[in-house]
């Protein structure tokens, strides 16, 4: 039996997404494919799989991404699929613990990659939002919601970036003492 769930996560909640996918796996629903805000599960034994996701460095069809995915597969994990630049893997729990990153510096790099993936669009929204509102006010033109929408989206994204930044700082503090 297959089950499809439509659900969305903001990129800065990637850990929440992964936790949810693993809670499904614990219940015996193993992720089998991903799409735009779409997760497809298949029946499995409870706790049969552990699921991990990450943001790839390059686009999915880039040879570097392909070679990375192959590398992870060679370590016994199964490639589930990709959505945007996010890649999903699963591995049978009986084959040992499954992590994609085991040290602080690679975890920090992953967070930097996620920040980098949204920074431009967030700044763009803030910029156009501010510009729109400025012109609306200074030219006394008719009310235009566009600027507020842009500014709202930008501010929302900025909160996400700040969260990721804090997470990164915490890891960096640990790195001063541990590797």
């Amino acid at each position: 039996m297959r089950k499809v769930v439509y659900k969305g996560f903001f990129v800065w909640n990637f850990e929440k997404e992964e936790k949810w996918l693993n809670e499904m796996a614990t219940k015996g629903l193993a992720l089998i494919s991903v799409g735009p805000f779409r997760y497809e599960f298949e029946d499995s034994l409870p706790d049969e799989y552990e699921v991990r996701l990450e943001l790839l460095k390059k686009s999915v069809d880039n040879p570097e991404s392909e070679s990375y995915i192959r590398f992870v597969e060679e370590t016994g994990a199964e490639y589930i699929g990709t959505f945007n630049r996010w890649v999903y893997f699963r591995k049978k729990t009986k084959e040992g613990s499954f992590e994609l990153y085991s040290d602080n510096s690679s975890k920090i790099k992953q967070i930097e990659r996620i920040i980098g993936s949204i920074l431009f669009i967030v700044l763009l929204n803030i910029f156009f939002g501010a510009e729109n509102i400025y012109f609306m006010l200074s030219l006394d033109s008719a009310f235009n919601a566009m600027g507020f929408i842009n500014l709202f989206l930008g501010a929302f994204g900025l909160i996400g970036i700040i969260r990721l930044w804090k997470k990164k700082k915490k890891l960096e503090r640990d790195k001063d003492i541990y590797m």
Partner: peptide, 10 residues
């Protein structure tokens, strides 16, 4: 020491 795949690849 369990090296994770992504860390090892990097």
């Amino acid at each position: 020491v369990h090296l994770a795949a992504g860390t090892l690849y990097g």
